[in-house]
Each structure stands twice: as structure tokens, then as C-alpha cells.
Design a protein around this nucleic acid. Structure first.
Lengths: 182, 182
DNA sequence: GTCAGGACTGACCGATCGGACAGTTATGGT
DNA sequence: ACCATAACTGTCCGATCGGTCAGTCCTGAC
């Protein structure tokens, strides 16, 4: 083998994630990724069955982490539910910044993707943020908090050091949800 | 003339806005727009110099409205500044829902567009939402409010009647900014 | 009626895309 | 040393894209 297979795979994934996050899924060609990773387009397609599969493999970890969060807060209620969800969600967006940015670029692409069920997970997250309430004001506030964290996480501006950013995102989101800190 | 020229132009703009909002700029071909508008692709390119020009014409009104808002709050300070900016911004997102959705689909496309200066205007909006403060917590909260309204406005879910939606968006955004209602 | 010009179109072009495939190179087990 | 096979590549393909252009159709002014 010319190189370790897993090393090349990792390099391709790294290049793909970075380029997707900047130029979007449609805006990045397989040739772009291959050139950045230092291999041929044909080699890329040897490691990954197709462009879609590449996308899937990039987003599955973030998806699983979100699913795990939703599972973890499934049994909670009231203040605990909202607090844990917000903190977990903020941490996820900071941990998967580039994936969020990629998701941000091509939402429609993902929403009709078979292997990814972003919309279903988003619904679950929305539900938890709203404290399981169906009350319109609570639902609107939940949408606001969801969007706020999402976009702030996707921003590459160095608006604040990471720890300050995290703390303030959590505090802001809780305020958005009209959650009086305990 | 086969039809009134301005009528055909309007029909094309309408189709383009709707399709762009759903599938994004890159995800919508000139043929798609032409078919939806009921004319040929060549006819579309007779009315509009190119795909980019079509995009520009669609976004200029929203851009001008945002610029007008920023101009209107330029002389304000403190609570009045934040309140007027939030209310104006929320109203803009609701008035230009589909334009927001289009912007949401292809942010990078717009940010490096010569005829559009979205990023500059976004900076101005961010500054006003932060109450002209450079304090990191205020900047983070401003980003959160900006994103919250943006995404909630772009959502097509009928989460609440428009008037309720407007009121709750304003209240949530003000809470995000830690603005105690007067 | 006729004629100038705006409205419109089918056919075509070059570029680029994702992907297929046969063939080549390098490697590790024996 | 040898060979099966994993790793890799150059080249080609069909589809689709934005855009051009010569020419057609229609309408209103005269």
C-alpha cells in the first residue's frame, strides 16, 4: 500500500470537513477535496463510495452525540430538563463547530438525506428546550434559543475566549427561554 | 410582445425567490426558474443579465430596508437603541421571510458578492444589538439575538400566528440581550 | 398593409461536475 | 523471490450547468 489506508481516509475527512465548512457541500468539488488532501479524485472515490457517503461519515458523530444528549434528558422535567439541555446543546455546538458550520451551509441538503435525520433530532431538541410545553410562546422561545446557539456556534469570529463564550452562550440561552437561574 | 414585459419579469422574480428559498441559490438552476415561471431559459436571460443579477435584484430591497433601520437607530443610545433595533429587526425578518430563507441557504455566496454588502450590514446590526458595547458578554448576547431572530424568521413552521410570533420574538430577543422591559 | 423593434425561443457551446473502470504500483505474508 | 491483494491513478463518460446567438413571432405606430 502506498500509505496507511486509515491515514489517507483521515486526511480526506479532515480536508472535506474544512472545505465543506467554508464553501458548503455543493460548493466543494471532489477534486477540491482530493487536491487539498494530496491525492487523486479517483483515490478519494476508492476510499469513499461517493460524495454523499463522505458527508454522512462527517456528520454521524455529531448526530450521535445529539441523540445521546436527547436520550440523557429524556427523563428530566422542569428546570433540570431545560438547564441540562441548554448546557449539553451549547457544548455540542462548540465541540462540533465545523460540523455545525457545514450543516449551516446546506440545511436543505441534509434535511432530505436518508442516512441523516437532522430534522427529527432538531424537533426533539426543540421539544426539550421548550420544556415539553406546547404553549406557543414557549415554542417560539425554544426556536429562538435553538437558532441563537446554532448561529453563534457557527460563527468563526473570535468574539470571546472559548470559556467566556461558553458561559455567556449558556446564560444568554437560558435568558431567551425565560429561565430564571437557580 | 408576447406578454407585458414587466409582468414576465415579475413572474420570474417571484419564481426565483420561491425556489431559491427552498433549494438555495446553487440548488436552483435557471431552467428550474424558467419552467416554474412558464418561459424558456433564454427568455429569462433576456430579462436578466445573469443568475447573479437575479439574486441581486431579489435581495436589494431587504438590504435597503436593513440599511434604513441602521440609519434610523444610528443616533440612539441605551435602552431606546436596543428596543428600536430589536423591534425593527424582527419586523424586517417577518416582512422579508423568503429573502431571509434564501440568505440562510447561501450565506457564503452573498458574503463575497460585490453588489451586496451583507457582512457590513450584519456588523452594524450586531453593534446596535450590543448597545454599542464592546464588552464580550454583550457581544455574545448580540450574536445570540441576531441568530435567534434570523433562524426563527427563516422557519416555515407555523409555530404560532404571525402577531403572536412577532410579539414573542421581540420579547425573547430582549431577554436574550438581558434587556429588562420598561 | 407594412415595418421597426421589443419579446421570445431552440439549438448550441464550453466548462465542470460526480462517478466508472481498466490498469499500475507498492506492500506484506509466505 | 514471488505473488495475491490493497492502494492508487489517468482517462474517459454522461449529465448538467450558465450563458450565447441567430432567428422567429408578435404588437403597436404609421
Amino acid at each position: 500500500m502506498a500509505r496507511s489506508a486509515s491515514a489517507m481516509r483521515g486526511q480526506i475527512l479532515e480536508s472535506a470537513l474544512r472545505l465543506f465548512a467554508v464553501h458548503g457541500f455543493r460548493g466543494t468539488s471532489l477534486q477540491d477535496i482530493a487536491s487539498d488532501a494530496g491525492c487523486s479524485k479517483a483515490s478519494l472515490l476508492y476510499h469513499f463510495a461517493g460524495k454523499e457517503k463522505l458527508l454522512t461519515e462527517l456528520l454521524v458523530p455529531a448526530q450521535d452525540a445529539l441523540a445521546a444528549l436527547l436520550d440523557r434528558v429524556a427523563g428530566l422535567k422542569g428546570d433540570r430538563l431545560v438547564e441540562e439541555t441548554v448546557v449539553g446543546y451549547v457544548d455540542l455546538t462548540l465541540r462540533f463547530r465545523r460540523e455545525i458550520r457545514l450543516l449551516f451551509e446546506d440545511i436543505t441538503e441534509m434535511s432530505c438525506h436518508q442516512d441523516l435525520n437532522v430534522m427529527e433530532l432538531a424537533d426533539g431538541l426543540l421539544d426539550a428546550l421548550a420544556g415539553r410545553s406546547q404553549h406557543p410562546p414557549a415554542r417560539v422561545a425554544a426556536w429562538m434559543a435553538l437558532g441563537a446557539v446554532f448561529i453563534t456556534g457557527a460563527t468563526d469570529d473570535e468574539v470571546a475566549p472559548d470559556e467566556v463564550l461558553r458561559t455567556e452562550m449558556i446564560r444568554s440561552a437560558l435568558r431567551t427561554l425565560d429561565h430564571t437561574p437557580s
